[in-house]
Amino acid sequence: MSALVLARSASLLNGQAPTTATPGIVTLNFNAAVLATGEAQRDLGTLQTKFAPREVQLQKLSDSVEAERMQLNDASVKLSESERAAKLQDLNTKDKQLQREAEDFKNDSQSESQQIFQRIAQKLYGLLQDYSKQHGYSVVIERGTDSSPIVWYVGNSVDITEQVAKAYDLKSGISSSSLPEKPTPGGGAAGTQTKPHTAQQKPQ
């Protein structure tokens, strides 16, 4: 019988609970930790506010295109051939404008959100190194998400995603609990969004 087993047996006989050692291997959802920080929520909220007017304009243009399309398809609306041709040309012009502006909106918003994500990810990566050393972890494994897990099962006691995000907030001085409520999204035109792309990324 090993000394470790004897020691554990002795502690149980004496009515003492066995000491729980710090796990050497822990897991982390890195993207979730980045997005959970107060800094990310603050900066992405500011970005959403910045792009809100463009989103509203896109929604208005989308509504206008849809209204004109419905009018052209309405058999009860009597139009001459020249009127129908003119309205069809106007509709095609607006539809192309909508597609172009929606694509620009998507590219611009995703580009800026990625810059925010990458900037915070670099700092959180550095903090993770110090945090892991301070807590005596041997390995930190990417956990993945519930829909795309990398580790099939993880006990709550060995996942440090929330703790790392809170440690980052403590260091940055920006807590998510102190931030104002998120602004209500403006429109919701098809194909437009200001949420960051959160595919797994390694800080550069």
Rank of each mutant, 00 (worst) to 15 (best):
V5W: 09
L6S: 07
A7D: 09
L12R: 12
L13S: 04
Q16V: 11
T20K: 12
T22I: 15
G24F: 10
T27V: 04
L28F: 00
F30H: 03
F30C: 02
A33Q: 01
V34T: 03
A36E: 12
A36C: 00
T37W: 02
G45F: 06
T46F: 07
E55H: 04
Q57T: 12
K60H: 05
K60G: 03
D63A: 15
D63V: 02
D63C: 03
Q71A: 14
L72V: 08
A75V: 09
K78V: 12
L79R: 15
L79C: 11
E81Q: 14
A85T: 09
L88V: 10
Q89Y: 11
L91V: 09
N92C: 01
N92G: 08
Q97T: 12
F105Y: 14
S109L: 07
S111I: 04
S113F: 07
Q115L: 11
I120A: 02
L124H: 03
G126L: 14
G126C: 10
L127T: 07
Y131L: 00
Q134H: 06
H135V: 03
T145Y: 08
T145P: 02
S157F: 01
V158W: 04
I160Q: 04
E162P: 00
E162S: 08
V164F: 02
K166L: 14
D169V: 09
L170F: 01
S172D: 04
S178R: 10
L179S: 08
L179D: 02
L179K: 08
P185I: 08
P185R: 05
P185E: 04
G187H: 06
G191N: 13
T194A: 09
T198V: 15
K202Q: 11
P203A: 15
